[in-house]
């Protein structure tokens, strides 16, 4: 996802027993010359490494980032490997085939076989998906799978009545709030 101009996104994911709010940090192009700052790694509970199904070199780069995450991030991090642009592959899943694009004349642009990435993902203990950001195919499944894979104990509770407990609660007490009224507003939004 090329998130130009938006540094930080949030997405909600509803599970049967809990709702998870994702705070998504896009790497803003800092990955291009392998210049990611440590601030991305620390405290990250999940990482999404996306490659292009039509570009074999992108999988090589993805493997590099997986290794980098395993080296730098916290040991319990959930890593999802995602092959994107499934809409350009003729063997796309049934839903993608039905979409208005009608992949008929474009032919099969797939250069990375599913089996290859899947075997790699299994070896490294990664979640694995093939998606189309264009049609939305499998995208929400990725988020749901990540949400399910993150252990309850490593989630920090949101601010608000009854939500704070244990170590996370102490964390909130410590934070100095520079935001004034503006922040108070968003707090209301979160805690209801």
């Amino acid at each position: 996802m090329a998130t130009y101009e938006a540094a930080f996104l949030t997405q909600k994911c509803n599970l049967p027993t809990r709702t998870i709010k994702f705070e998504i940090w896009d790497t803003a192009g800092q990955e291009r010359f392998a210049s990611l700052a440590p601030m991305y790694y620390r405290n990250a509970q999940a990482a999404l490494v996306v490659y292009d199904l039509t570009k074999p070199t992108s999988l090589i780069k993805a493997k590099h980032w997986v290794a980098e995450l395993q080296r730098q991030a916290s040991p319990g991090i959930v890593i999802a490997l995602v092959g994107n642009k499934l809409d350009l592959c003729s063997d796309a899943g049934a839903d993608a085939g039905d979409d208005e694009d009608g992949s008929g004349d474009s032919g099969d642009a797939r250069k990375v076989p599913t089996e290859e990435s899947k075997a790699y993902a299994e070896e490294e203990g990664l979640l694995f998906f093939e998606t189309s950001a264009k049609t939305g195919h499998n995208v929400s499944d990725v988020f749901t799978a990540i949400a399910n894979a993150i252990p309850e104990t490593s989630l920090k509770s949101a601010r608000g009545p009854g939500a704070a407990s244990g170590a996370a609660g102490r964390n909130e007490e410590q934070r100095v709030n520079l935001g004034g009224p503006r922040n108070a507003d968003s707090k209301e939004g979160c805690a209801c």
């Binding site: 996802m1 090329a2 998130t3 949030t10 909600k12 509803n14 809990r18 709702t19 998870i20 709010k21 994702f22 705070e23 998504i24 940090w25 896009d26 790497t27 990955e31 990611l36 991305y40 790694y41 405290n43 990250a44 509970q45 999940a46 990482a47 999404l48 490494v49 996306v50 490659y51 292009d52 570009k55 992108s58 999988l59 780069k61 993805a62 980032w65 959930v78 994107n84 642009k85 990540i146 949400a147 993150i150 989630l155 920090k156 509770s157 949101a158 608000g160 939500a163 939004g189 979160c190 805690a191 209801c192």
Partner: peptide
Amino acid sequence: IKSKARVCTTHFISIPSD
């Protein structure tokens, strides 16, 4: 984010290798 369920926060990063 508004929700009646318990809201949890996680933080993760997305690296577009492509």
